[in-house]
Amino acid sequence: MSTALLGCQTDPDPATAQLRKEGRSPAYVEGYKDGCQSGYFAAGDPKFKLVRDATRFNYDTQYVQGWNVGFSACKAKQQGPAG
């Protein structure tokens, strides 16, 4: 459970640091990071890729919640304001 490993990956969104400060679980933060990267990809940014741990998505509710929030937030940021 080393946080040093988190530094090896680039956060697609600085919100993950804020999530940690808020006391979100490591699983939630990891899900948010994966979902955010996937959201940027879904919005058409080729610098990102679809990332989702299929096994964790089936059993880890914290990962799933983080992934869904990250996906929605980052996809919306990439697409900009609607209308």
Score class of each variant (00 low, 15 high):
S2I: 12
T3V: 09
T3H: 06
L5H: 04
C8K: 13
C8S: 09
C8D: 06
Q9R: 15
T10C: 01
T10Q: 05
D11N: 06
P12L: 00
P14R: 08
T16P: 10
G23H: 13
R24T: 03
S25G: 14
S25T: 13
P26F: 05
P26N: 12
Y28F: 09
V29G: 08
V29P: 07
V29M: 04
G31M: 03
G31C: 04
Y32H: 01
D34P: 12
G35T: 09
Q37N: 10
S38F: 02
G39M: 03
F41G: 00
F41Q: 01
A42T: 08
A42E: 08
A42Q: 10
A42Y: 10
G44D: 07
G44V: 00
P46E: 06
K47Y: 00
K49F: 00
K49E: 01
V51S: 11
R52Q: 12
R52K: 12
R52F: 03
D53T: 09
A54I: 13
A54R: 15
T55F: 08
T55K: 14
T55S: 13
F57M: 12
Y59M: 14
D60N: 08
D60Q: 04
T61N: 07
Y63W: 05
V64S: 12
V64D: 10
G66W: 06
G66E: 01
W67E: 12
W67K: 09
N68R: 02
N68P: 00
G70Y: 13
F71A: 01
F71P: 05
A73E: 15
C74A: 02
A76D: 08
P81K: 14
G83V: 08
G83R: 09
G83C: 10
